[in-house]
Design a protein around this nucleic acid. Structure first.
Length: 640
RNA sequence: GCCGACAUAGCUCAGGGGUAGAGCAACUGAUUCGUAAUCAGUAGGUCCUCGGUUCAAUUCCGAGUGUCGGCACCA
């Protein structure tokens, strides 16, 4: 006699074991029709699952957030069936729901092409129209392995073999097709609906390991209804319009060319943005008690051997040699070993700690060709890097201080919030387990003290220490890791950094590696996409364009520009013989934040007509007032 | 690095085994105009590179390079 408790607190009792379908029907025909699956005592279940004991039950309908994941999961099954019916012999592997959709990895000698999509989608629609019920069966483990091996499904067989003994081997049927699956599923293939679309094909290693065979992955998106699907597709278009590579070209900020792949040619306007940002960061660091340094680009391999980088990252370093000297130098891929050299130059006292050493360090890394991406992932970049040499006791306060500084910078740069991930020891690492215990604990304590909440990112720490990763979310919901803070006991040891303590003895300092922007290149890419190129006035490479309406007003326009420049603003005159409409359009498309229109009237009255990017409103101001207002607005936030 | 796609004017793109095409941008001229495209004209090309097939290759084939989408990588 199971008593079923519903979300509203009401209880229904049934004669014997009862399925979700029956319960839903007992509540009402509307729910019977809408229920796709259920949550029994907190766990998602098929509607057809029999409940024999008392339980609390909530039904999942299409309106639930949970339905989205089920639709995607079920759609993945439908996709797999469609592909196997079209190309028998294709092996199935896994097909999980992901953000915005799902994918399915297939093994097949001939990869799919986007031209196959139409046929696959059509077959999927047939399968969905047939609305075959999902039927769960539990199989004997060995029989299941034998079954899939018989079919030549070696990947599925491997998956079953690797399932823990305790786990039941559940199989889901949909009509004549079946697949190994943990479930749960909705009632039938028809519940997938029609709001799905195959998006792209891609290669992916079996089980994410590059030593394994390459599978063909089909990415797809799926939603509750067509409206959601359209909204998603619109969002993708928006992302494309914001693409920093496109905006970088449109705004003439930078370019990349074949002779220097992975390195950026910064054009005047892009470089202005870059220097505005470095100037800002330099002020922030100075306020934060950092000392700026500059260290060599080319450093002998012996230092990299000592630091451990040669062993681990040699293949990713640019190596330089000269003919008449028997030396091997490397373009520095990072700054820390060099900073340690400055630290150990001469005796250090405990009184100097914490010693905060900053460098806008230009680094080069031979990134894999497939990793390169616009200015976000490059081979030559500059970090806002710094190392804090300190004592164990100083880790926590320094972490708190750093997080405060980072928050302020992100806020100033237009990012409302950020997330923190705690990445602990990776499989391949330097240093003893004891020192890792110590470092991880120290970092956790520091977070507690600084009030930093984080999620775990297991095994993703640096090879020398655990790290905090500071992740920004841009305007369209994408995540970017920018800031970082890493606790390092290894490098000071390896490079023999020490200071004289209060007790007159030598001690090892701890090193905190930290960055806020990460690399200027990447961060500028994020900024471009965040603002879609429409920068706040203080960051905009061209802040004001003064556009004349008639030639008679041209001298006045030039005068206005001169006055703006004298006030420290980036201003340009547009006195071309073009209609004002054309000028407005051009400069708006070029994302100039402020256009000052001057005609005869303004010239006579020493005024300007101010127009903001994105608006059509105009404001007629006296020249001096306009310059004062714009000058104030263009002041970097930390100087206001 | 791996899988796949792509590479034609400054940009966006069309085309196709035999003199290379459009729109926008550029340049020249006319126009002096009040808040998102004035009109007319001119010029612009190693069709990514190298090799092969062919009477003939920008087009077909192969290799390389680069870019794009993923995967792997990211000190």
């Amino acid at each position: 006699m199971p008593a079923i408790t519903l979300p509203d607190g009401s209880v229904r009792t049934f004669e014997g074991p009862v399925t979700g379908t029956t319960i839903a029907a007992s509540i009402g025909p509307g729910l019977a029709k809408a229920a796709l699956a259920m949550i029994v005592d907190g766990a998602e279940r098929d509607l057809s699952t029999e409940i024999a004991q008392d339980a609390s039950v909530r039904f999942i309908t299409r309106k639930d957030e949970a339905a989205l994941e089920m639709i995607r999961h079920d759609a993945a099954h439908v996709l797999a069936e469609a592909v196997q019916s079209l190309w028998p012999g294709t092996q199935v592997t896994i097909g999980p729901p992901i953000k915005d959709g799902f994918y399915y990895d297939f093994f097949r000698n001939e990869p799919f092409t986007p031209e196959d999509f139409e046929a696959i989608e059509a077959r999927m629609r047939e399968i969905i129209a047939a609305n075959a019920p999902f039927e769960r069966e539990v199989w004997d483990r060995n029989e299941a392995i034998a079954y899939f091996e018989d079919k030549g499904e070696r990947f599925k067989a491997e998956l079953i073999r690797d399932l823990p003994e305790s786990e039941a081997i559940s199989i889901y049927r949909q009509g004549a097709w079946l697949d190994l699956c943990r479930g749960p599923h909705m009632r039938g293939t028809g519940d997938v609906g029609s709001a799905f679309k195959l998006m792209k094909v891609a290669g992916a290693y079996w089980r994410g390991d590059h030593r394994n065979p390459m599978l063909t992955r089909i990415y797809a998106t799926a939603w509750r209804d067509g409206k959601e699907l359209d909204a998603y597709l619109t969002r993708l278009e928006e992302a494309e319009r914001r693409d920093h590579r496109r905006i970088g070209r449109e705004m003439d900020l930078f370019h990349i060319q074949e002779e220097a792949t992975g390195s950026i040619f910064w054009h005047p306007k892009g470089w202005r943005l870059y220097t505005t940002l470095t100037d800002y960061m330099r002020r922030a660091q100075t306020r934060g008690g950092y000392q700026e340094v500059r260290t060599p680009q080319l450093v002998d391999r012996s230092l990299w051997e000592a630091s451990g980088h040669w062993d681990k990252y040699r293949e990713h370093m640019f190596i330089a040699t000269v003919e008449d000297e028997d030396k091997t130098l490397a373009l520095k891929p990072m700054n820390c070993p060099c900073h340690v050299q400055i630290f150990r130059h001469g005796l250090r006292s405990y009184r100097e700690l914490p010693l905060r050493m900053a460098e806008f360090g230009a680094c080069h890394r031979y990134e894999p060709s497939g990793a390169l991406h616009g200015i976000m992932r490059v081979r030559g970049f500059t970090q806002d890097d710094a190392h804090i040499f300190c004592t164990d006791d100083q880790i926590a306060p320094e972490t708190a201080k750093f997080v405060a500084m980072l928050s302020e910078v992100y806020t100033d740069l237009g990012f409302e919030s950020f997330r923190v991930k705690f990445a602990d020891r990776p499989e391949q690492r330097a240093g003893s387990d004891e020192s890792w215990d110590k470092a991880e604990q120290a970092l956790k304590d520091a977070c507690a003290l600084a009030g930093v909440e984080y999620e775990y990112n297991p095994g993703e720490g640096a090879f020398y220490g655990p790290k905090l990763e500071f992740v920004l979310t841009d305007a369209i919901g994408r995540d970017w890791q920018c800031g970082t803070l890493q606790v390092d006991y290894v490098l000071p040891e390896r490079l023999d950094a020490s200071y004289i303590g209060e007790d007159s003895a030598r001690h090892r300092p701890v090193m905190l590696h930290r960055a806020i922007l990460g690399s200027f290149e990447r961060f500028i890419g994020i900024l471009i996409e965040q603002f879609a190129g429409k920068f706040p006035l203080w960051l905009a490479p061209v802040q004001v364009v003064v556009a004349s309406i008639v030639t008679d007003a041209a001298p006045y326009a030039e005068e206005v520009v001169a006055a703006l420049k004298a006030a420290g603003l980036q201003a340009e005159a547009d006195v071309r013989n073009e209609k004002i409409n054309a000028k407005i359009r051009e400069h708006s498309l070029a994302r100039v934040p402020v256009i000052l229109v001057v005609g005869r009237r303004e010239a006579e009255n020493r005024q300007v007509a101010l127009r903001r990017l994105g608006g059509a409103a105009q404001e007629v101001l006296d020249l001096d007032a306009a310059i004062a207002a714009l000058g104030a607005e263009a002041t970097p936030p930390d100087l206001r």
